[in-house]
Amino acid sequence: MAKSIDVSDLDIYYGDFLAVEGVNMHIKARSVTAFIGPSGCGKSTVLRSLNRMHEVIPGAHVQGKVTVDGQSLYDSAVDPVAVRRQIGMVFQRPNPFPTMSIYENVLAGNRLNSKKMKKTEADDIVERSLKGANLWNEVKDRLDKPGMGLSGGQQQRLCIARAIAVEPQVLLMDEPCSALDPISTSAIEDLIHELKSDYTIVIVTHNMQQAARVSDETGFFNLKAAGQPGHLVEFNATPKMFANPDNEATEAYISGRFG
């Protein structure tokens, strides 16, 4: 299921404004890749460009190349809707659909394609996805209750369950723990470890300890100067990145001297 992603010479624009410049990286299949860097350096923008979610903002466009196992995401014939289906996303704030039950929330993505699903098939997907998101035991007795009734951490795991229910190839996570308490955060981090065996995961985080804990490889983004576009400073295996980075700026950031 999992696939690798290649990014080459990627420039991202909002209208005329160049937000991120010259990104090159190879994201390995079945691994966790973390993006770190100071606020406004474009790491979320790069993450969103991996499933074309940045296009939600009018005027956003890219130059360069993003390929998933050799398939270009930005070819003119490629449908962004199909891209997003295969590359799932989890957001900063948990966003279950307020009018749907837990059960319906998990199935929201699947319902798009097959309106008439067999009850047993649907039950299977819900159970498998919620188990995959480590949420099954907590909610199995109240699947018909609204998703908004759960705690923040549970809601976020519900969103992860919703994302993996459609069996994507890649899972993008945009600061998935920044709105959560430490215990919920630790539950999500455990989950990321487990999901790694099935999915390619890319996670944006502000928290360097988190990056060090969960990721196999890390990309450090920074602004060249205030008002300049963001760029990828260094991309390396996480142990090397935190112990002995190649770049001085990376070392300065990681050791807390700026940012």
């Binding site: 009018p58 466009h61 130059q63 360069g64 190349k65 398939q71 070819d75 490629v78 449908d79």
Partner: peptide, 20 residues
């Protein structure tokens, strides 16, 4: 939402899942 690319068109069999 214009998308500009500098790509040659990849072979169809590669793209199968991404584009109907």
């Amino acid at each position: 939402m214009s998308t500009t690319t500098d790509l040659k068109t990849p072979t169809p069999d590669q793209l199968e899942p991404l584009m109907g």
